[in-house]
Design a protein around this nucleic acid. Structure first.
Length: 559
RNA sequence: AGGGGUGUCGCCAAGUGGUAAGGCAACGGGUUUUGAUCCCGUCAUUCGUAGGUUCGAGUCCUUCCACCCCUGCCA
């Protein structure tokens, strides 16, 4: 799967596991990927998936998929299904059945009772506002809840009442008795269970109290025998609590938590809240909109799983925050597609070319190789006819310096075919070029010429080609850091041209054979994929994954 | 003096006391019937800062600075 696994850098987690295996602390490692099913997976999750599943693969261990489903009102089956699909699509398989933290609710309840019985937890009736006041601040210690020293039997009874549904939400919580003066706020008598009168997507109406993340995660890891529990940096302050719970209940084993820096990508947002907002407010067309950094969005955009895995390997795993340039992601997909995508020709903004010395009813089969370096990808036929379309921007009435395309009286080669010369430019009343009249050199096919040929341009037969829809995607935001301006919402820097659709593009006829999710390089333009849902033989729909590197654009910029 | 982290090229990132890997980007040049790909070359006398230890410091000690995370009955 990750074929270049051996080239992967030996980051700190690999070193830790190496040492744990060498010392005999573990004989086999078990990791887990623990998403909450409250949204779609994004590129940041891909990093975590590649890390957790990749580590398991590398060390011949196992990786579980466990849904962290302790907050049912925000979660749903739709998200569970999409997450499972995305992980498989990325190329990974979890060990055994899918797990749910909710599978462990009975055990968690028992452990909560155990804590109460040992005088280490109590039921508290402070209101949320009071709770905040009692918690203190970053610089001041908190103070004890008046319920903190109630008798064990009383807390036991109250906890049972919570479970039985005798309290409304907010009226009672179970709290651990740790240290209200701790500089680590997570240790100031944290909440273990809260009342939630909501239906749970897995457990139905069995429970009306739900454990918090902190009381669930470490214990779930222990139940599953996770050896290395890997999470992101913001959970570092939770590690003492993770360990406190494991130390104060009868846990079957004691997993260790390790943190790494989450992925940040410029020109994109990866907060679930913001992605949800983009979807809910319809700034994009759903979670899998090709402009979304979700795994399903990237997939629909035309990214391959291999490219995503390669990207995750390239960026490394460390504990320092950083922002990765999207250019790195684009490099990964270009590299993969350059090798794998068959070439084809498509004209996005057509202008008609009439080859005046080419017979009107003649159709010449031009054989083109599907890949310039990989003969195994075979050849295809593109019909050449008297009238063809070329890209409007491949013609200039007045050729700028270094111009390598069509211009009056200049020679240019039609890719894979003849050299043509532009003899006449026909315009409408507004001065727009509507037709170019050219003549071709019958001796120029597959041969060099004695005269100077400007360059090579792509073309599509006007009579044999097919009209198609092309969706030109660009980055969703115009700012490298969409969240960087405190006075400006990220919504204000959405790129108005992040999606430009054309329905008047012309594709070479071989493209009618293409199926959903087939990828191509449209020569001289970029990489395109047949839309996963909207493409059909009757209506070709291509999404631009990424453009080709464009050195001409750079030359132009420099003037 | 609240606690916890992090600082190595424009961006990622190796480096684990012996004299700064690699990738992306950028910039030159070559090949090319894709201004693509590919190939060649250039790109940190210096590792946030200031001191100190040492024959020798990005690596050890101290100072200061910058940035990130933490006051949900979210995860």
């Amino acid at each position: 799967m990750s074929s270049n696994d051996n080239n992967a850098p030996n980051h700190f987690l690999r070193q830790i596991i190496d040492a744990d295996l060498a010392s005999g602390k573990h004989t086999k490692i078990v990791t887990r990927f623990p998403p909450e099913p409250n949204g779609y997976l994004h590129i940041g999750h891909a990093k975590s998936i590649c890390l957790n599943f990749g580590l398991a693969q590398h060390f011949q261990g196992e990786c579980n998929l466990r849904f962290d489903d302790t907050n049912p009102e925000k979660e749903s089956q739709e998200f569970i299904d999409s997450i499972k699909e995305d992980i498989h699509w990325l190329g990974f398989n979890w060990a055994g059945e899918v797990r749910y933290a909710s599978d462990y609710f009975d055990q968690l309840y028992t452990w909560a009772v155990e804590l109460i019985e040992n005088g280490k937890a109590f039921v508290c009736h402070l209101t949320p506002e009071q709770m905040r006041e009692y918690r203190g601040s970053l610089t001041e210690p908190g103070k004890h809840s008046p319920y903190r020293d109630r008798p064990v039997a009383e807390s036991l009874a109250e906890f049972e009442k919570m479970r039985a549904g005798e309290y409304k939400e907010g009226e009672a919580v179970l709290r651990a008795k740790i240290d209200m003066a701790s500089p680590n706020i997570n240790l100031r008598d944290p909440i273990i269970y809260r009342v939630r009168h909501v239906h749970h997507h897995q457990t139905g109406d069995k429970w009306c109290i739900y454990p918090t993340y902190d009381f669930t995660h470490g214990q779930s890891d222990a139940i599953e025998g996770i050896t290395h529990s890997i999470c992101t940096l913001e959970f570092e302050d939770h590690r003492p609590l993770y360990e406190w719970y494991l130390d104060n209940i009868s846990a079957p084993c004691k997993p260790r938590q390790y943190e790494f820096a989450r992925l940040n990508l410029n020109y994109t947002v990866t907060s679930k809240r913001k992605l949800k907002q983009l979807v809910d407010e319809q700034h994009v067309n759903g979670w899998d909109d090709p402009r979304m950094p979700t795994i399903s969005g990237l997939r629909r955009r035309g990214y391959t799983a291999a490219a995503l895995r390669d990207f995750c390997e390239r960026i490394g795993v460390t504990r320092s925050d950083g922002v990765v340039d999207v250019g790195t992601l684009e490099f990964s997909i270009r590299e993969d597609l350059d090798a794998k995508a068959p070439r084809a020709m498509c004209v996005l903004d057509p202008v008609k070319v009439v080859i005046t010395n080419f017979d009107a009813d003649k159709v010449e089969d031009v054989v083109l190789s599907n890949h310039p370096k990989d003969e195994s990808m075979g050849t295809r036929v593109a019909p050449l006819t008297r009238e063809v379309y070329i890209e409007r921007e491949d013609f200039a009435e007045v050729a700028p310096k270094k111009w390598k395309r069509m211009a009056p009286e200049q020679y240019v080669r039609l890719r894979g075919s003849y050299v043509v010369r532009c003899d006449e430019v026909i315009k409408d009343e507004q001065g727009n070029v509507v037709e170019l009249r050219c003549s071709y050199d019958p001796a120029s096919a597959g041969a060099s010429t004695e005269y100077k040929v400007n360059g090579v341009i792509h073309w599509v037969s006007a009579s044999k080609g097919v009209q198609c829809e092309v969706r030109l995607y660009d980055r969703l935001f115009t700012e490298a850091d969409p969240e960087g301006d405190k006075d400006k919402s990220f919504l204000e820097v959405i790129n108005p041209e992040s999606l430009v659709v054309t329905t008047t593009a012309w594709a070479e006829p071989s493209l009618t054979q293409a199926s959903s999710e087939d990828r191509f390089q449209f020569e001289r333009l970029g990489y395109f994929v047949c839309d996963r849902y909207d493409h059909s033989t009757d209506k070709l729909v291509f999404n631009r994954t990424v453009g080709l590197r464009d050195s001409w654009a750079k030359i132009q910029q420099k003037g």
